[in-house]
Amino acid sequence: MHEISVMSEIVKGIIDEAQKRNALRVERVSVEIGEYTMLGEEQLRFAFKVISKDTLLENAELDLRTVAGTIECECGFKGEASPASDTPHRSVPVLECPKCGGGARTVGGRECVIRDIRMVVPDV
Protein backbone atom coordinates (compact mmCIF):
# COMPACT_ATOMS: atom_id res chain seq x y z
CA MET A 1 0.00 0.00 0.00
CA HIS A 2 2.96 2.32 0.57
CA GLU A 3 4.80 1.47 -2.66
CA ILE A 4 4.07 4.91 -4.10
CA SER A 5 5.67 6.75 -1.17
CA VAL A 6 8.66 4.37 -1.07
CA MET A 7 9.12 4.66 -4.84
CA SER A 8 8.94 8.47 -4.56
CA GLU A 9 11.90 8.28 -2.16
CA ILE A 10 13.75 5.94 -4.53
CA VAL A 11 13.20 8.22 -7.54
CA LYS A 12 14.21 11.28 -5.48
CA GLY A 13 17.41 9.51 -4.39
CA ILE A 14 18.24 8.57 -7.96
CA ILE A 15 17.59 12.05 -9.35
CA ASP A 16 19.87 13.49 -6.63
CA GLU A 17 22.69 11.17 -7.71
CA ALA A 18 22.09 11.84 -11.41
CA GLN A 19 22.04 15.61 -10.96
CA LYS A 20 25.28 15.52 -8.97
CA ARG A 21 26.92 14.14 -12.11
CA ASN A 22 25.03 16.34 -14.58
CA ALA A 23 23.51 13.23 -16.14
CA LEU A 24 21.45 13.65 -19.31
CA ARG A 25 19.38 10.61 -18.53
CA VAL A 26 19.27 7.46 -16.46
CA GLU A 27 19.30 4.17 -18.36
CA ARG A 28 18.94 1.58 -15.65
CA VAL A 29 18.37 1.41 -11.91
CA SER A 30 19.06 -1.60 -9.71
CA VAL A 31 17.01 -1.83 -6.55
CA GLU A 32 17.09 -4.63 -3.98
CA ILE A 33 13.96 -5.45 -2.02
CA GLY A 34 14.16 -7.54 1.12
CA GLU A 35 11.93 -10.60 1.16
CA TYR A 36 10.40 -9.56 4.50
CA THR A 37 9.30 -6.08 3.39
CA MET A 38 5.67 -5.48 2.54
CA LEU A 39 6.61 -4.06 -0.85
CA GLY A 40 5.04 -5.68 -3.91
CA GLU A 41 7.07 -5.92 -7.11
CA GLU A 42 4.17 -5.20 -9.45
CA GLN A 43 3.10 -2.16 -7.43
CA LEU A 44 6.68 -0.87 -7.32
CA ARG A 45 7.01 -1.20 -11.10
CA PHE A 46 3.74 0.62 -11.64
CA ALA A 47 4.77 3.39 -9.21
CA PHE A 48 8.14 3.72 -10.95
CA LYS A 49 6.50 4.18 -14.32
CA VAL A 50 4.17 6.86 -13.01
CA ILE A 51 6.66 8.77 -10.86
CA SER A 52 9.58 8.67 -13.32
CA LYS A 53 7.54 10.27 -16.11
CA ASP A 54 8.97 13.62 -17.25
CA THR A 55 12.13 13.12 -15.18
CA LEU A 56 15.69 12.01 -15.99
CA LEU A 57 14.45 8.50 -15.28
CA GLU A 58 11.70 8.32 -17.84
CA ASN A 59 11.89 5.02 -19.77
CA ALA A 60 14.79 3.78 -17.62
CA GLU A 61 14.92 0.05 -16.97
CA LEU A 62 14.02 -0.90 -13.40
CA ASP A 63 16.04 -3.89 -12.27
CA LEU A 64 14.26 -5.17 -9.14
CA ARG A 65 15.89 -7.97 -7.20
CA THR A 66 14.55 -9.76 -4.17
CA VAL A 67 17.03 -10.35 -1.37
CA ALA A 68 16.40 -13.47 0.67
CA GLY A 69 15.54 -12.98 4.32
CA THR A 70 17.88 -14.37 6.94
CA ILE A 71 17.24 -15.32 10.53
CA GLU A 72 19.40 -15.90 13.58
CA CYS A 73 18.70 -18.13 16.55
CA GLU A 74 20.13 -18.37 20.06
CA CYS A 75 21.25 -21.92 19.25
CA GLY A 76 23.77 -20.46 16.81
CA PHE A 77 21.86 -21.00 13.57
CA LYS A 78 22.15 -18.20 11.03
CA GLY A 79 20.71 -18.52 7.55
CA GLU A 80 17.60 -18.51 5.46
CA ALA A 81 14.28 -19.33 7.09
CA SER A 82 12.40 -22.11 5.42
CA PRO A 83 8.78 -21.45 4.52
CA ALA A 84 6.27 -23.78 6.11
CA SER A 85 5.58 -26.59 3.66
CA ASP A 86 1.80 -26.53 4.10
CA THR A 87 1.49 -22.82 3.41
CA PRO A 88 2.94 -22.26 -0.06
CA HIS A 89 1.46 -18.78 -0.43
CA ARG A 90 2.94 -17.26 2.67
CA SER A 91 4.62 -13.93 2.08
CA VAL A 92 6.77 -14.39 5.16
CA PRO A 93 8.45 -17.58 6.34
CA VAL A 94 7.65 -18.92 9.74
CA LEU A 95 10.25 -17.50 12.10
CA GLU A 96 11.02 -20.90 13.52
CA CYS A 97 14.65 -21.97 13.70
CA PRO A 98 15.10 -24.88 11.26
CA LYS A 99 17.81 -26.31 13.54
CA CYS A 100 16.32 -26.25 17.03
CA GLY A 101 12.69 -25.20 16.44
CA GLY A 102 13.01 -22.16 18.70
CA GLY A 103 11.96 -18.62 17.97
CA ALA A 104 14.44 -16.91 15.68
CA ARG A 105 14.85 -13.25 14.88
CA THR A 106 15.32 -11.68 11.46
CA VAL A 107 18.70 -10.22 10.62
CA GLY A 108 18.26 -9.53 6.90
CA GLY A 109 15.52 -9.10 4.37
CA ARG A 110 13.82 -5.92 5.55
CA GLU A 111 15.73 -3.48 3.37
CA CYS A 112 15.00 -1.55 0.21
CA VAL A 113 18.31 -0.46 -1.31
CA ILE A 114 19.20 1.50 -4.44
CA ARG A 115 22.19 -0.60 -5.48
CA ASP A 116 23.48 1.16 -8.61
CA ILE A 117 22.43 3.54 -11.37
CA ARG A 118 23.54 3.47 -15.01
CA MET A 119 23.41 6.96 -16.49
CA VAL A 120 24.56 8.97 -19.47
CA VAL A 121 26.91 11.75 -18.37
CA PRO A 122 28.94 14.41 -20.22
CA ASP A 123 32.41 13.08 -21.23
CA VAL A 124 34.67 15.80 -19.93
Binding site: E17, R21, D116, R118, V121
Partner: peptide, 17 residues
Protein backbone atom coordinates in the same frame (compact mmCIF):
# COMPACT_ATOMS: atom_id res chain seq x y z
CA UNK B 1 30.47 13.68 -26.20
CA UNK B 2 28.74 11.57 -23.64
CA UNK B 3 29.53 8.38 -21.85
CA UNK B 4 27.59 5.81 -19.91
CA UNK B 5 28.62 5.18 -16.31
CA UNK B 6 27.29 2.92 -13.62
CA UNK B 7 27.34 4.53 -10.20
CA UNK B 8 27.19 2.43 -7.03
CA UNK B 9 24.84 4.04 -4.53
CA UNK B 10 23.92 1.59 -1.73
CA UNK B 11 21.19 3.84 -0.36
CA UNK B 12 18.62 2.11 1.83
CA UNK B 13 15.28 3.90 1.52
CA UNK B 14 13.81 2.28 4.63
CA UNK B 15 16.90 2.91 6.76
CA UNK B 16 16.06 6.62 7.13
CA UNK B 17 12.96 5.61 9.10
Amino acid sequence: MHKVVTVEVEKDILSAN
